[in-house]
Amino acid sequence: MKVLFLLSIIFFSTYSGAVVKRHDVPPENYVLDKIPEYLIDMPHEGHGVLINSQWVLTVAHTIFYDYVGKDLVVGSKAYEIESVHIHPDYSAPNKGLLKGDLAPLMRFFKSRSDIALIKLTSTVSGVEPINIYSGKSEKDKTITVYGRGATGNGLTGEDPSTKSLRVMNQFQNIIESAEGNWLAFKFDEPESALSLEGMHGSGDSGGASVIFQEGIPFLVGLSSWQLGHGDISTFKGGLYGTTAYQVRVSNYHDWILGVLGS
């Protein structure tokens, strides 16, 4: 994906962000037995979400090059990509931002629109797209987030070497901020955490953040980056206390409908 995340997310954000877990909960508790079919793996890293029978939503930094003609597997079938639509307010960071103090890079991440739409050449059959949450009341809601990137725990942070395992995990968190382009939540320590509290990691970029209303899932966010401080060379993703940012899908509702309509 390119970002998920800040460095990890970051970089991993930039160049890319499975899920970073509580250290006091068995890791297998986070493993997803049945994967929602609207979750899609991108060609190299990261995820997308089926929001329409012919359209996939993802974060823009998962698009490494022209994906037209490549396949995405939805459910059990492969579908060819017809076109990719990256938000006009998205850009990749220049090399100068990828060294030294993290503050300029963090400001850059927050200022851009990390979102893209992918159109398939044919309609998907047998898989129900997820509904998009169109309200503005995300704050304080409990979200379930999916990803199969790097894993680890809040004490030691994420371990990039685990990204190749490609195990689908889920975690939960509570949205603390819903402003402008972004949803934000913090990875709390066990004494104030949810039973499956977690954080996205490198390789999780574009993973769905979902709320359930009367048992029906609604897409509210896409994993994008983690907030970092200090020098980029010492950044460690996924530690307790870290704040994560996700693309606030409701903020792009009109843009999404405009692209689909075109």
Results as ranks from 00 to 15, higher is better:
K141A: 12
I81P: 02
V210Y: 04
F212M: 05
Y15R: 11
S262V: 06
L98K: 09
G46L: 01
A92W: 13
L155E: 07
E138V: 05
T242D: 00
E158H: 02
I118R: 11
E28G: 01
T121L: 10
A244Y: 13
I40E: 06
I40F: 02
T14Q: 03
S83H: 02
G206W: 09
V259T: 11
T62Y: 04
G149N: 07
Q213P: 00
D254V: 03
A103L: 12
H61L: 05
S8R: 07
T144V: 12
K136A: 11
Q226P: 02
D114S: 10
H23M: 12
Y146C: 09
K95E: 14
Q172A: 04
V259G: 00
I51K: 10
G237V: 00
H85T: 09
Y146H: 10
I211A: 07
A103G: 10
G215D: 02
K186D: 12
T234N: 11
E214D: 13
S13G: 15
D101T: 14
G46H: 12
R112Q: 05
V210R: 11
G147K: 12
L102N: 04
A244N: 10
I211E: 02
P104M: 03
I9E: 10
Y15A: 15
D66P: 01
R22E: 04
H200G: 05
D71R: 15
S223Y: 00
I63N: 09
Y65P: 00
F187Y: 07
I118Y: 04
T151D: 10
G221S: 09
Y30L: 06
H61K: 14
N94A: 14
T121S: 15
S223P: 05
F171G: 03
F108W: 08
G96D: 13
Q246P: 06
S192Q: 06
L196E: 06
I232R: 04
I10W: 01
L120I: 08
V220R: 04
M168S: 03
S177K: 11
V127G: 00
V73S: 08
S202C: 06
R166F: 13
P190M: 10
G126S: 12
Y133A: 01
G75N: 07
V31Q: 15
A178R: 07
P129K: 00
G198C: 03
S192R: 07
Y146A: 02
S209A: 15
T123E: 10
I40K: 03
D159H: 00
P190I: 14
L260K: 14
L222G: 12
E179C: 10
P43H: 07
G215H: 13
K110P: 06
V220P: 14
H23C: 08
K141L: 13
M42I: 08
E189F: 04
L102T: 13
I63Y: 15
G100R: 08
S250W: 08
G237A: 06
E138M: 04
G96N: 13
L102H: 01
